[in-house]
Computed example of a mutant assay.
Amino acid sequence: MRKLCLLLPVLALLINSCSTNPYRATNKSYKKQTKAFAKLLSQYPLQDSVNNASYFVGTTNLSMRRPNFVIIHHTAQNSCEQTLKTFTLPRTQVSAHYVICKDGTVHHMLNDYLRAHHAGVSRWGNSTDINSNSIGIELDNNGFESFDERQLNSLNLLLERLKKSFNIPSANFIGHGDIAPTRKNDPNWRFPWQTLSEKGFGLWWSDTSNVQVPENFDYLTAIRIVGYDVKDTSAAIVGFKRHFLMDTTKGMTPEAAKVLFQLHKKYL
Rank of each mutant, 00 (worst) to 15 (best):
W193E: 06
G136C: 07
F147A: 01
P192S: 12
Q151R: 06
R190F: 12
L159A: 10
V213W: 10
E145M: 07
I135K: 04
S154K: 05
R161E: 12
N131G: 06
S146M: 06
F147W: 01
I225Q: 15
T233E: 11
G143W: 04
V211P: 09
F201T: 04
K231Y: 10
Q194A: 11
P169E: 12
P181H: 04
S122G: 07
E149M: 10
L162K: 03
F191V: 00
E149S: 13
V238T: 15
V213D: 09
N210W: 09
Q212L: 07
D148A: 15
V121K: 13
I179Q: 01
L196S: 06
S134R: 04
R123Y: 00
N216G: 13
P214I: 15
N188Y: 03
I135M: 00
V121I: 14
V211Q: 12
E138A: 00
A180Y: 01
I137P: 00
T208A: 08
S170N: 13
K241E: 08
W204N: 09
K199W: 07
N188L: 01
A236D: 02
S127K: 10
K231S: 10
G177H: 00
D129S: 15
T195A: 14
A171Y: 11
F147T: 00
Y219C: 08
L159N: 09
W204M: 08
V230Y: 05
R224L: 01
V213E: 12
T182A: 09
F201N: 01
F240Q: 03
E215P: 11
K231N: 13
L203D: 11
Q151C: 05
Q212R: 12
N156K: 13
D148M: 09
V211F: 12
Y228A: 01
R183Y: 13
K184Q: 13
A222T: 06
R183F: 11
K184Y: 07
S127Q: 13
L152Q: 07
S122E: 05
G136Q: 03
E145S: 11
F217L: 12
D129W: 14
R161M: 09
G175T: 00
S234R: 14
Q151S: 06
G143I: 06
G175M: 01
D140P: 00
A222R: 03
V121N: 12
W204S: 10
Y228N: 03
F147I: 04
T221S: 14
S165K: 15
L159Q: 06
L220Q: 15
